[in-house]
Design a protein around this nucleic acid. Sequence first.
DNA 1: CTGGGGACGGGGCCC
DNA 2: AGGGCCCCGTCCCCA
Length: 502
Amino acid sequence: MANCMVFHTQIASIMEVLANAAVADICKLVDDDYAVFRLEITQSQKENRALRRKLQLLELRVARERVLASRPSSVKILDRHRGMARGEGHLAGGHRSFVKPAGRNTWRDDQPITVDEGSGTSTHHVIVVESVDAEDAGPGVKLERSEGEDPGQSTDIQTGAAGVLPVATEDPTTTPPRTRRSITDVSGTPNAVLKSETDAETLTVAHRLLHTGSDHRSDPERLGPLGCPPAPSTEYLPVFHQSQKMVNSCGNTDGDALDSGGDDLSCFYTTEMDSGNISLGLETPTDLSRGDWNQCNSSVYSEGCLDKKGKVIAVDDVTVKVEGDTPLTWNADENHLGEGHSQDFLDYRESLETNPNVSSHSPVHTLRDRAPVSTTKGPSDSHGRVLFDQVLNSNDRARAHAQRGGATSGNNKEKRFLCMFCNKGFSCLQKVEIHQRVHTGVKPFSCTQCDMRFAEAGSLKRHQRVHTGEKPYSCPQCHMRFTQAGSLKRHLKVHVGERLFV
DNA sequence: CTGGGGACGGGGCCC
DNA sequence: AGGGCCCCGTCCCCA
């Protein structure tokens, strides 16, 4: 009996040892495999970064060459950015590039294009405008900022040959003294093109929105003086929207840029952006495919109609004006584009870039904000696809409308706000913002009882009759009732014998 | 033929 | 007075 007990104890001990050994072996195998896996991942990431960097470089070169080929006397753009490319950062640094050609500004082949793959927490685009007109640089011109700076800093512009741009390493010995202007813009999104009445110097406005893809601005026929549709004796000014303190004052900080700089008004921006939640990643396709676009929208969009005044930045060469300072309400839960819009947006982008009739600006983010009507969840992926198909179709429609007269001519003062996508003119900013939802697919208004979303409040209101059953429009000649006045009007033709189809 | 949504212009109100 | 915002009406399109 005692021997049996001892035997069992020994057996138990042996089994425990064996079990421990097995566990150790398993752990070792797992660790080994994990290490190998990690190594492979790391290598893949490195390769991915390298390829991406190359891609960006190539894109920039292609864009520049395109501009050189089509517009020999132009400007040059230094596009610095990234970090967002890896989805690491937000748009705290902002970016848009503004190029203001002046005098003998030219693109130069020797101009280095630097693509920073830096921190990713702050990115911006730098456009260096070279001008031999020293008088162009007025007081308040500062050095351009380098990447990673506080987005709240002022737009910096460098004057004179003394400064050496951190990005554009220009050889001062081979070039005459120049006036360099670089507007390092804050975060924001081009929202519309505001057409000014001035006929001062032309300004090519280039905005990239963290986009490393093809250069939207390089099409001179589309861009015109301000990177916007050309218009005789008119400058088209891009309108950006930011929500708050992202606005930088540049040069004149007294906010008189718009008022005092009429003759030299070059840019006029209204910007809205949530400084704390800016993920304006109109990113590279890679990033978009990861959903940055959705993230962007969820954090950016809301109702386009303002309850409060947004900020307005006026870039008057070296000045930025902030007209408003009211923080806006965000609803980060809103994903107005819903799931699955990333690729849709890419498709849309592609359509923009390949269609010569479409403004080649980066897509717009309407950042104006108001609490959405409701916060139902976004549409499904399929809905997203449908939505963007609608967007694309509507874009064609809008473009067609613009071509047959919707687009503002240069002297239509009543429609000073131009859509960045189709050039259609609108009388006020809100109109163009709402209109641009056609292109962006933003639908801030969501139904509380279903997943439907709408770009306009009125559409939501109309839609909600579907749920309430309200049919306020009744036919006087029959018992038919309708939810929409247009439906009743159409129905009335039945009674009068008017047939749509014979 | 209807239901329903997209898009846009116009008018009223407010600042 | 002028501009911005909001609401409404309307047309168009698609299912």
